[in-house]
Design a protein around this nucleic acid. Structure first.
Lengths: 274, 274
DNA sequence: TAATCTAACAACGA
DNA sequence: CTCGTTGTTAGATT
């Protein structure tokens, strides 16, 4: 699933490519991705234009000319792709296709668990998932103190909290790998054992890795609205740890390990991360 | 902790012994058993008389002359005892002592986790524990159909549900032993595997064992308000299974086993109960 | 040993 | 983590 950096890059490309296009047709091939009956959805969306796009957690939020919002969650294996000339989509693969008045199309693709939710102005905050998202880790409000607070009184492992979208929005099981490596913290480290020093390193690592992710372009399997992919894995320094099992830790040359943490996989340097 | 049959017997004795007595003094030796500050509690209780007593789940509920309720939960090792002539209670042992105008005393004793909660008329249903109690298993409303419904869509082991006070009120880890033996059901039996036949046997076993418990008098460690104890363990047929590890199953002579089920102990016939 | 609440965790389903 | 629900467990304690 695309995480914060992937969404930031995708949203930037959508802001270049899509504003002003008027929706002239909509095909929905899997109705449960919508939060309304198909007919209602079509009626409310036809004739609308996208005004702008923004990122919130792992969601793409677009503002329509009516002031309503269309919120995309790409689930697993998700893509938002602009197509021109128009093609006939494979209905098994494409969940929703928006056709525009200039002949181009926006394909919403994912193989499982995605959402395309129409929200009236002001309904963002009452949306069961979007409304409960935590802080944006690249915003000014995400301070070291906030991170200290977040762990206060918590008993579990830090990885659980970093992945919990109600605390921090946008970190998933890809970028967290390098975040924990930069912070020199083991994913199983208990929150209550963190020192202020640890939290400071973690705070810095979160912002550093997410910003670097934006700079490097979409992560593995991700792309922008035109299908451009990023540098991930194509150059030596990026990523340092994620999906590099058996390679050497850049700091100490110990071999990178792959372990199960709860139901997720973690990549880590067993020597640097404690 | 006293369970439904023990509470029924205790309540009956309290209805004989206590109505009409006026509370002339109250000593509270552990304030956290109350749901009010001690001074407020004393002010509201002094001069009151007990009108009647009833059983709800594992609670003793008494109605005062004001229409308010005083709800007792005896926690672990709990006793409600009428004393005359008055004695000086050991404050380490006795949590609350009510002195009456005739010189007698009601001692509230337990070594852990008991409650003495004052509730205004109508507050019973909003009490966090009493208000969420499930059905009374000896009431007419407790039908086989109710029991079938209770297990519908449930995935866990039946013992969890039978002990969960939000489903059925009043069964604890003592009487459940003979209930499951009579129903020929293993405590770890998954709810979803129950046949209608099983549920029917279970329904009958619940009512049979609880009624027999009332008839036999208070269970192990329990007593009525005068301190009378029951027949438990003093005669061959009662109980059949509970606390009889290593004895013979009355049906098949297999030795009774003692196992851990979650965090509780279960006694069972490994041959009869499946 | 017991009772109940809760957080954390796992299993499952959508 | 993709997220919600449900059940299980460990820890704390009203």
């Amino acid at each position: 699933m695309p995480e914060l950096p992937d969404i930031v890059v995708l949203v930037a490309s959508m802001n270049e490519a899509l504003p002003g296009k008027e929706i002239s047709n909509i095909s929905v091939h899997q109705s449960k991705v919508l939060n309304r009956p198909i007919t209602t959805f079509r009626k409310e969306m036809l004739g609308r234009t996208f005004r702008s796009f923004s990122q919130r957690g792992k969601w793409v939020i677009s503002e329509l000319d009516t002031g309503s919002m269309l919120a995309f969650n790409l689930g697993m294996g998700g893509e938002l792709r602009l197509h021109w000339p128009p093609m006939v989509p494979d209905p098994k693969r494409e969940r929703v296709v928006f056709s525009f008045n200039d002949g181009s199309q926006l394909w919403v693709h994912f193989w499982w668990f995605g959402h395309v939710h129409l929200l009236k102005s002001g309904e963002l905050s009452s949306h069961p998932q979007i409304g409960t998202l935590g802080i944006e880790p690249l915003s000014d409000k995400f301070t070291e103190e906030k991170l200290v607070e977040m762990f206060e009184g918590k008993r579990g492992r830090i990885k659980s909290y970093l992945l919990d979208q109600r605390f921090i929005a946008g970190i998933g099981n890809v970028y967290i790998q390098d975040i924990l490596w930069h912070a020199k913290l083991h994913p199983n480290r208990q929150a209550k054992t963190l020192l202020v020093e640890d939290v400071k390193r973690l705070h810095h690592a979160i912002q550093h890795v997410l910003r670097e992710g934006i700079k490097q372009g979409p992560g593995p399997g991700e792309q922008d609205v035109w299908g451009n992919r990023g540098q991930w894995g194509k150059q030596p320094g990026w990523p340092q740890i994620a999906y590099r099992t058996g390679k050497s830790c850049p700091t100490c040359q110990t071999l990178i390990d792959e372990i199960r943490v709860g139901s997720t996989t973690s990549f880590l340097c067993p020597r640097c991360q404690v």
